[in-house]
């Protein structure tokens, strides 16, 4: 009925269809949700996107803003995805070497909750740094890691 289980982007949650908020401009709506680990969030759906964004704000309107910013940033990085793939390939072949920091993930347009749950699934909770080599190989399993590699490449001056 009112509560729906959902697994997406490494997060298992239940959301409440009886607790829905719509943004002022009508382009977004959010359901109150809780993960199977007991963390509250807003599951935000934006016009033209099938997958929801996981926002950990208490206020749904902050959640709309956070989702909007992330989507805008994701679109910008997506327009340079060929560069991202080239950097990842070079990291895998050892032609480029740099570490990727947790800060790169935090500054990327990936939601913090998804990053946390992803790292947990891989037994990497609490990790602060990983070799670009490993992460680029993991990107073959989870393509969204490209957003983190992009952020690290910016910091390293490999991309600008």
């Amino acid at each position: 009925g009112d509560f729906i289980p959902l697994r997406s982007d490494w997060i298992s949650l239940f959301y409440d269809t009886g607790h829905k908020v719509t943004s002022d401009d009508g382009s977004q709506y959010a359901f109150r949700a809780i993960t199977t680990r007991g963390e509250y969030l807003w599951l935000v759906f934006s016009a033209g996107k099938t997958r929801g964004y996981h926002a950990e704000t208490t206020c749904p309107h902050s959640a709309f803003a956070e989702a909007r910013e992330a989507l805008t940033y994701r679109r910008a990085v997506k327009s340079r995805w060929d560069d991202v793939r080239a950097v990842a390939r070079a990291l895998r072949r050892g032609k480029l070497r740099f570490d990727v920091l947790i800060e790169d993930a935090m500054e990327s347009p990936l939601c913090a909750m998804g990053t946390r749950h992803f790292l947990r699934s891989f037994g990497l909770s609490g990790i602060k740094r990983i070799s670009g080599f490993k992460l680029a190989w993991m990107m073959l399993i989870e393509p969204q890691l490209g957003f983190v590699i992009y952020q690290a490449a910016l910091r390293e001056g490999v991309l600008s």
Partner: peptide
Amino acid sequence: VITKLAAYELLAQERP
């Protein structure tokens, strides 16, 4: 990990 039932109860408490 919380059960489905616990999750539903917690969500119900969040309703306005």
